[in-house]
Amino acid sequence: MTTIGWDAGSWTHEPAATRIDGDDLLVTAVESSDAWRNTSYGFVHDTEHALLTPMPAESAVEVDFVAEFSQQFDQAGVFLRADAEHWVKAGVEFADGAPQVGAVVTWPHSDWSVSPVPGWLGRTVTVRASRSGDAVTIRAGVDGELALVRVLPVPPDASLSAGPLVCAPTRAGLTIRFTGWRIGDPDGSLHP
């Protein structure tokens, strides 16, 4: 994997603040920032903070961040974007009192899948999106132990950009420490 510099990407929407701290990037989200389209809630939110660079076919992107969450729907992870109606966010979201690993796939309506990961709170989480053929495989974990989160279809000719994501749908003041951003070869297979 090759490290991507924090100055390499462009924000989908400017965060409230960013600051370099050593090798890390601290990002403070704007209150009410989020990414969602229609399903169940009936609204469209296109205000996420995602720092994106191109993600070619047959590549993988990894993002590391410290999972410091305390408010409903605080979230951080990786964002893959084709356009305003076709995107994926995957990572950790604080929902119903606990950190949850999951993904939202919007193509063009959003869905949502989560699973509780209480032991991840306060730890450095890695989220990996691996693109190969007609699929993206999402894996996430701590301490280098990544587990399968989701496999989703993506057209092989889709033009994607990807990178770190932070959103704070219900409050001001959420700051996330990103500790790594890398690009490299896709996973060799779906199963080890």
Rank of each mutant, 00 (worst) to 15 (best):
Thr126Met: 09
Gly77Thr: 01
Val151Ala: 02
Ala129Pro: 07
Gln75Lys: 04
His49Ile: 05
Trp6Cys: 03
Trp181Asn: 03
Gly173Met: 09
Trp6Ile: 08
Ile4Val: 03
Ala8Cys: 04
Phe79Ile: 03
His13Ser: 00
Arg150Val: 03
Val166Met: 02
Leu165Ile: 03
Trp107Asn: 14
Val104Met: 09
Val142Gly: 09
Gly102Cys: 12
Glu145Arg: 14
Asp46Leu: 15
Ile20Thr: 12
Phe69Gln: 05
Val101Arg: 07
Pro153Leu: 01
Ile138Pro: 02
Asp96His: 11
Val61Arg: 14
Gly5Thr: 12
Pro164Asn: 08
Asp83Leu: 12
Val127Phe: 12
Thr124Pro: 00
Ala84Trp: 13
Ala95Ser: 10
Glu58Met: 14
Pro156Lys: 10
Ala82Asn: 14
Val149Tyr: 07
Thr179Lys: 01
Ile183Val: 12
Trp36Thr: 02
Asp64Pro: 06
Ala103Val: 04
Asp64Thr: 04
Ile138Thr: 05
Val104Gln: 06
Pro118Ala: 08
Thr53Trp: 08
Thr2Glu: 12
Asp83Trp: 07
His191Arg: 14
Val149Gly: 02
Ala50Thr: 07
Trp11Leu: 06
Ala158Tyr: 03
Ile20Asp: 05
Pro155Tyr: 07
Phe43Val: 15
Trp181Val: 11
Ala158Arg: 13
Ala84Lys: 13
